[in-house]
Computed example of a mutant assay.
Amino acid sequence: MKTIFIIALLFVVTIVNAQQVFELSGQVKNKKGGDNLEFCSVVVLNKENKIIKGGITSEKGFFNLPVEAGEYKLAISFVGFQNDTVSIGRLNSNKFLGVFKLEPNNESLKGVEITASSSSAIIDKDIKVVTAEMRKGSIDTKEILEKINGVSYDRYANTIKVDNNKNVVILVDGVEKNQEYIKNLDPKRLNRVEIVRDPGGRYGLEGYAAVINVILNKNYRGTEAFFYDQAIVDRNPNKPDLLVPINNLYVSLNHTVNNVNIYGTISHNYMH
């Protein structure tokens, strides 16, 4: 009987001391275009800036985090955008925090290479400022990228890799682009490069290992024209036993004036 009483007493004490859990929710949008931002990192911090709970936004930009009662602040980050930190105050009920509008990050940074300690716990993002020394001897963007730790260009597969993984998403000023667009840009265009490993969200679900976000200089004026004709030997698709020379012809043109960009490509494969 005494044992049952002690167990019951401990059960009551546990209930009394248990913290009630509330839901923090909200939505994140692009301030410039108003579109929803998917897989933003959303983190709840206590007064000592210790991470209490973290998550990412959904396809519609919504987040929903279960948090115990307490006094907190919220930190939101997303590649290519300025971080946003707001005070939540004392949480003692479910709270919808409203819509957060992130500002695209187009500001120039000073320095050479940094990993922001304030955001490293929120998102694994490395930032590399493109310096005059990096541009020296580089004829295009892919050569600039090769000078960044962990980034390489596979000339046989004609693809950009991060940590030797070809599953990489390329963004330019936060907008997704194909690799052909970025490879041959003039190095003078580049302001900095942001690399996010294990991006999570949709990109993570689709198996991408990293996101490369290239931030361009404002008010750039210039034209890049690129041409190559690659010759390889491969099997004739109509006669598999016959090896034939195949040429891959590729031409691209990129013209920019006052933030207006015109881009076009032509490619053609032909057998001899």
Score class of each variant (00 low, 15 high):
residue 251 V to F: 15
residue 41 S to K: 11
residue 45 L to R: 10
residue 80 G to L: 15
residue 115 T to D: 11
residue 145 L to I: 04
residue 249 L to P: 07
residue 28 V to N: 02
residue 206 E to V: 02
residue 120 S to C: 09
residue 233 V to Y: 02
residue 79 V to L: 14
residue 96 F to V: 02
residue 176 E to P: 06
residue 111 G to N: 07
residue 217 N to I: 00
residue 20 Q to N: 08
residue 146 E to M: 10
residue 203 Y to E: 04
residue 92 N to S: 01
residue 135 R to C: 07
residue 130 V to M: 02
residue 133 E to M: 08
residue 148 I to H: 07
residue 166 K to F: 01
residue 228 Y to S: 15
residue 81 F to S: 04
residue 233 V to E: 00
residue 225 A to M: 09
residue 136 K to S: 15
residue 167 N to S: 13
residue 181 Y to C: 00
residue 260 V to Y: 12
residue 239 K to S: 04
residue 196 V to Q: 14
residue 197 R to N: 11
residue 258 N to I: 03
residue 53 K to V: 15
residue 148 I to D: 04
residue 131 T to R: 11
residue 139 I to K: 14
residue 258 N to W: 13
residue 40 C to T: 15
residue 128 K to F: 15
residue 204 G to R: 09
residue 70 G to T: 11
residue 44 V to I: 14
residue 269 N to Q: 13
residue 257 V to E: 14
residue 105 N to V: 03
residue 7 I to N: 01
residue 211 V to R: 06
residue 80 G to E: 14
residue 230 Q to M: 06
residue 161 K to G: 01
residue 117 S to V: 12
residue 223 T to F: 11
residue 261 N to P: 03
residue 34 G to D: 09
residue 198 D to F: 12
residue 224 E to F: 06
residue 253 L to D: 05
residue 82 Q to N: 01
residue 88 I to W: 03
residue 121 A to V: 11
residue 67 V to D: 05
residue 1 M to K: 11
residue 255 H to C: 09
residue 34 G to S: 01
residue 267 S to Q: 02
residue 268 H to Q: 15
residue 15 I to Y: 07
residue 227 F to L: 15
residue 36 N to M: 08
residue 261 N to S: 12
residue 51 I to Q: 14
residue 205 L to C: 05
residue 66 P to T: 01
residue 112 V to E: 15
residue 205 L to P: 03
residue 271 M to F: 12
residue 84 D to W: 05
residue 24 L to H: 06
residue 71 E to V: 10
residue 258 N to F: 08
residue 64 N to T: 00
residue 31 K to T: 00
residue 7 I to P: 04
residue 171 L to D: 09
residue 75 A to S: 13
residue 41 S to Q: 10
residue 210 A to C: 05
residue 225 A to H: 03
residue 220 Y to A: 03
residue 43 V to R: 08
residue 8 A to E: 01
residue 262 I to P: 01
residue 208 Y to V: 13
residue 92 N to V: 08
residue 32 K to V: 00
residue 228 Y to E: 15
residue 150 G to N: 04
residue 241 D to A: 10
residue 134 M to C: 07
residue 143 E to T: 06
residue 161 K to L: 07
residue 51 I to T: 10
residue 198 D to L: 09
residue 5 F to S: 08
residue 56 I to G: 08
residue 150 G to D: 09
